[in-house]
Simulated assay, not measured.
Amino acid sequence: MRTDYHMHFEKGSYDENWVEGFFTAAKQRGLGEIGISEHSHTFPEFKSLYYEDLVLDDSFIGKFQQQWLKSNKFKYTIDEYFAFMHKLQKKHNVKIGMEVCNFQDQGKVRDILKDYDFDYLIGSVHFLHGWAYDSSEIKAEWDKHPLEDIYEWYTEEVEKLADSGLYDVLGHPFNIRLFRYLPDFDVTPYLVRAAKALKKANMVVDVNTGTYYRYPIHEISPYPDFMKIAAKYELPIITTSDAHKPEDCGNYNQMAVDYAKSFGYTGTVRFDKRQRTFTSFDLE
């Protein structure tokens, strides 16, 4: 069965007519099941965590991030999200997830999420020392940091997410390649550290086509070097599109499946109430 568990409604609203496009695209691309994983910045419950963690001073990145937090953020409560998803579940086979940023206080995250019956939770590294490194508007910040530091910071954040015990999936692993800042040093130790952390936490790898069609790197995350290590450590996977618009649901899913197969993967996992089962790519 083909699935896609990483997508967001944030470019639109909780309007059934608008989100129906996700299900239309899923059907057109042969997906048997999808899941919605709204960003944590959708929800006011997380607002204080963003203001605690992000650089918000008068610097180049601080000024941008101040405006970013005021744009289309914190507009639905988690209760409103669940109510809308339950309405959709009356018509569609859709799972309820969330993509949570790598906040430094994971204890607060646990308190926010503990009363909700999610099917799965994705933990993703979106900030390095308070900097939203995947924002093209502040891409110039990359030139201020040695790439060795970036890899160390990123790996440390993966380890923290895994150590929290909160998450089922690591979102778009090693997408720090997204602007084509490519290392000329051996990154294997970082990749192995990340894989070991995921293995210990029993987490799944997100094979994500978003970096292929949305960023200059034009490759699936994680890239081949990490996929080899993920396969070696027998880390399960999901294949996802990271869709932010209805028409992108399941985008390049076949490419993701073929990519995973090239590393020996024969299927993905499905989630239900934080429990997972294996399903073959070729199972209808």
Rank of each mutant, 00 (worst) to 15 (best):
96 I>R: 11
263 F>Q: 02
175 N>L: 06
109 V>L: 03
261 K>T: 10
52 E>N: 15
284 E>K: 14
170 L>C: 08
52 E>M: 05
225 D>T: 03
69 L>A: 07
54 L>P: 13
159 E>K: 15
64 F>Y: 15
27 K>M: 09
46 F>S: 11
270 R>W: 03
101 C>R: 07
23 F>C: 07
154 Y>I: 11
280 S>H: 14
260 A>G: 07
186 D>T: 06
167 Y>F: 15
6 H>P: 03
231 A>N: 01
223 Y>V: 14
271 F>C: 10
218 H>M: 10
198 L>W: 09
123 G>H: 01
63 K>W: 05
216 P>L: 10
249 C>I: 01
169 V>N: 10
156 E>M: 08
198 L>I: 11
124 S>C: 12
66 Q>D: 00
208 N>M: 03
236 P>H: 01
62 G>M: 12
103 F>K: 06
94 V>D: 06
246 P>M: 08
263 F>W: 06
97 G>F: 05
181 Y>W: 07
105 D>A: 04
192 V>A: 10
129 H>S: 13
102 N>D: 11
12 G>T: 04
201 A>D: 02
267 G>K: 08
191 L>E: 01
282 D>N: 13
62 G>W: 14
35 G>S: 12
167 Y>M: 04
128 L>S: 05
3 T>H: 00
114 K>H: 13
183 P>C: 10
69 L>D: 08
146 P>C: 00
207 V>P: 04
34 I>H: 03
72 N>L: 01
114 K>G: 04
25 A>P: 02
73 K>S: 11
279 T>F: 02
16 E>V: 15
26 A>K: 08
5 Y>D: 10
113 L>E: 02
113 L>S: 07
270 R>M: 12
251 N>S: 12
98 M>I: 15
39 H>D: 14
115 D>Q: 11
108 K>Q: 14
232 K>L: 10
51 Y>A: 00
254 Q>D: 15
266 T>G: 13
22 F>Y: 15
143 D>Y: 13
68 W>E: 13
36 I>A: 09
67 Q>Y: 02
89 Q>T: 09
166 L>C: 12
197 A>R: 09
227 M>Y: 10
180 R>M: 06
244 H>E: 02
16 E>G: 01
65 Q>S: 04
276 R>I: 02
157 E>H: 08
36 I>E: 07
74 F>N: 04
107 G>T: 12
199 K>F: 07
253 N>L: 09
240 T>F: 00
42 T>W: 10
122 I>T: 07
148 E>A: 15
16 E>P: 01
144 K>I: 00
147 L>G: 03
186 D>Q: 03
167 Y>G: 04
203 M>N: 05
196 K>G: 04
246 P>E: 06
96 I>M: 13
127 F>W: 08
278 F>V: 11
176 I>W: 10
278 F>A: 13
128 L>M: 12
257 V>F: 05
23 F>T: 06
219 E>Y: 09
269 V>P: 11
11 K>A: 14
156 E>V: 13
66 Q>F: 04
147 L>W: 02
175 N>V: 08
191 L>D: 00
203 M>P: 00
222 P>I: 11
144 K>H: 08
180 R>N: 14
281 F>I: 05
281 F>T: 03
198 L>P: 02
77 T>E: 11
253 N>Q: 15
31 L>V: 09
208 N>L: 03
95 K>F: 02
38 E>V: 04
175 N>T: 07
70 K>D: 13
153 W>D: 14
195 A>F: 11
165 G>R: 12
28 Q>L: 13
72 N>H: 15
49 L>Q: 12
257 V>S: 05
266 T>F: 00
267 G>A: 05
